[in-house]
Amino acid sequence: MKSLFVAFAPGEAEHAAGFFATLGGDWAATEVPPGLVADAAAAALRSASEGFTHIAAVSSMRSKDVLARLAGLLDAAMVTDAVSINSPTSFVRPIIAGTVLATVETMAQPVVVTFRPSGFSGDSAPGQMVSLPTPPEGQAKRTAENVRGGSRPDLSQAKRIVSGGRPLKDAETFERVIGSLADRLGGAVGATRAAVDSGIAPNELQVGQTGKIVAPDLYVAAGISGSTQHMAGIKDSKCIVAINTDPDAPIFEFADFGLVADLFQAVPELASKL
């Protein structure tokens, strides 16, 4: 058994250690440069993957874009969003917005896996670095790009997250209320689909079944009802705080600490008392 780790972003390799320590066997690592479109990246990875039983990457939109295409090229078995490993041919992954855990058996090789790092611990190191063969020219051409960065920690790795929902009204209010508390905590900002759809927050901040999956030590949900789809993204948070005016909001079923209050008062007050 010999695995290949595909890094799509700096710092991902440290999350690979736990996954491969759990999977067992030797592993090598390769890196996909940021600019490559999926068709070119998958073509290059296809040659790099030769001889490997498992090809794995940290779950992200980019890794799903590229690795599922790679799996198609390799006729591989694929497991998306693995959260634990029973054996090299048996993985556990959440389905139906995280309301069910499925045990998935792979029946072909190679196995292509994307995994959520928070599910794995342990130490291991890559035995070798594999350089990516020169990719072909992409069939798709990137003609414009809008990368929103900023000084806040990356949402998927953050230890503390403050998220806001529909009642935040507009982008300016969201930034003023949610952003200030996040900065006070040295944390990242997140949002619900409702907030993103209505232009209150940018799309890359969406947390949930179909957005980012997070697992911080502290998750503060302000003005968030607690839909199954949103909860799918925050279940592994160590401590969830809910601030909501509706005492019957479903979020209170999941929150470690719930405060029935108007977020426009409670959130600034909380920020001022830290």
């Binding site: 972003a9 479109v37 992200s60 939109m61 980019r62 798709a140 051409k141 990137r142 003609t143 414009a144 790009e145 809008n146 990368v147 929103r148 960065g149 940018p202 799309n203 890359e204 980012k212």
Partner: peptide, 10 residues
């Protein structure tokens, strides 16, 4: 949509 924003592909 991407992990960090948006991009345009042709």
């Amino acid at each position: 949509e991407t992990d960090t924003g948006e991009e345009t592909l042709e």
